[in-house]
Design a binder for these strands. Structure first.
Lengths: 118, 118
DNA sequence: CGGCATCCTATGCGATACTG
DNA sequence: CAGTATCGCATAGGATGCCG
């Protein structure tokens, strides 16, 4: 868990500050995913880092981890209510970047590898 | 300037990700300030780091730096239009933190007393 | 399949000293 | 007053290998 400094804006900024976290949250806003699915959606992430980011998101109560004890094991990640309420804010950030940073919002681009949405 | 990864949400997240940046933006949303005023508003920041954060905010076009060549020199920082449009988003982040992280929003608290959390 | 353990590098940040 | 220059540490993140 990150330090919050007593400032709520920093607190929110910190929980999404990891390199892959907003992408993870964004993908999970369309559909819950397994570990390997997320890895496929995030080209370039290592397993160690992906696991770490997911652990921190879980600690911060943004995502919920569901383990199914089978062989092979199955682990599903999905947004918590808190995580879902973050999505509208991320959408605002997306729009702001489009206007002020020249980075175009791309809601259809489920990222580099598009997957069917629900 | 930070890397944007081609993702607009990350782009926005990155420009406010510095340790002191949201506090700087927050203070400047109330009044433009001189370098020494900001230093006084941010207890614990070193001059080097404050200067660096301000330089990055300037590069990202969130703040505008106005130099008055007098003796002693005077430098004023204020929000750009882009910076001002970020404030409503930061307010949303503030409210979200209050609900989901238990970090209370404090809009009147112009100098935010640091209370570490975890 | 979904992870840890280990090693490594890059860099953000802090402390201090100096300067135009 | 408003910065730079230098040093040093802590940590995030990447590469690789092993495991239940």
């Amino acid at each position: 868990m990150k330090e919050h400094f007593g400032c709520p804006i920093q607190a929110t900024s910190n929980v999404i500050a990891g390199k892959w976290k907003v992408l993870i949250l964004w993908h999970l806003s369309f559909a819950s995913s397994r570990f390997s699915e997320l890895r496929g959606l995030l080209p370039g992430v290592s397993e160690k880092v992906l696991a770490a980011q997911l652990r921190e998101l879980e600690e911060d109560r943004l995502v919920i981890r569901t383990i199914t004890q089978t062989v092979p094991p199955r682990v599903d990640y999905r947004l918590s209510p808190a995580g879902e309420e973050l999505i509208p804010i991320m959408r605002k950030m997306c729009e702001w970047a489009g206007v002020h940073l020249g980075v175009l919002p791309n809601f259809t681009q489920r990222s580099i590898g598009a997957v069917g949405s629900k």
